[in-house]
Amino acid sequence: MHKSLYSRPNDVFLMLLRDVRMSKRLRQSDLAVRLGRSQAIVSRVESGERRLDITELVAWLAAMDTDIVTFAKQLHARLQGDIAGTGRRGQKRLRPAAHRGP
């Protein structure tokens, strides 16, 4: 069994987590304050260096005024789109838009 930490579905999960934060117009530091954590932890989670368990994910989403059901539906849609070829294929790792190449 391969490690899911470096799998395409995990990349999609992390991308969605970041996209939700950004859609709420929250910086990593803003989310960190809401969570009572450091900005470094937010960065580590979004980069895939640190994983969230389910209870942490629920708290993380609540801090962004999002619920687990909505997030799960969005994740499912993105994963289905990725399988169907309409997702963001070809990206090796998550990077902010400003760092993506042409």
Rank of each mutant, 00 (worst) to 15 (best):
L17C: 11
A98C: 04
L31N: 01
G90L: 05
T55F: 12
L35C: 03
W60Y: 14
T86N: 12
A98N: 07
P102C: 00
Y6D: 12
M64L: 09
A63G: 11
K24P: 01
A72Q: 11
L17I: 15
G36V: 04
L61Q: 02
S38Y: 00
L52K: 09
S38I: 04
G90C: 10
R51N: 15
R37H: 09
I68V: 14
M64G: 08
R44N: 05
L5C: 14
K92N: 09
T70K: 10
R93K: 14
R50M: 04
L75S: 00
T70D: 04
F71A: 14
A32S: 00
V33G: 08
A84G: 06
H2G: 13
R50Q: 15
R44W: 13
A77D: 11
R18S: 03
V69F: 04
R100P: 00
A97H: 02
L14G: 03
Q28C: 07
R51D: 14
V33W: 07
D65R: 15
Y6W: 07
G36I: 03
G48M: 05
A72E: 06
D67P: 01
V69R: 09
Y6S: 13
T55S: 14
R21S: 03
L57V: 08
H99D: 12
V12W: 00
M22V: 15
G36C: 03
L31E: 05
D53L: 01
S23Y: 02
L14D: 12
G48Q: 05
R95G: 01
R37I: 07
A77S: 13
L75D: 03
K3M: 15
I41T: 10
L79S: 02
V69C: 11
H99K: 12
T66F: 03
G87M: 03
V69Q: 08
E49N: 05
R21D: 04
Q39G: 00
V69H: 11
A40R: 15
R27L: 04
R51C: 13
D65V: 11
A62T: 09
L31D: 00
R44I: 00
T55M: 15
F71W: 09
A32K: 00
E56C: 01
R93H: 01
R88V: 06
S4C: 14
E56D: 06
K3L: 12
L75P: 00
R89I: 08
G90R: 02
M1L: 03
H99L: 12
A98S: 14
Q80S: 08
M15W: 15
S23Q: 07
A72G: 15
E49Q: 10
L16W: 06
Q80R: 10
D30V: 10
S43N: 10
I83Y: 11
G85L: 13
A72K: 11
K73L: 04
I83S: 09
A40W: 04
Q91W: 13
R34Y: 05
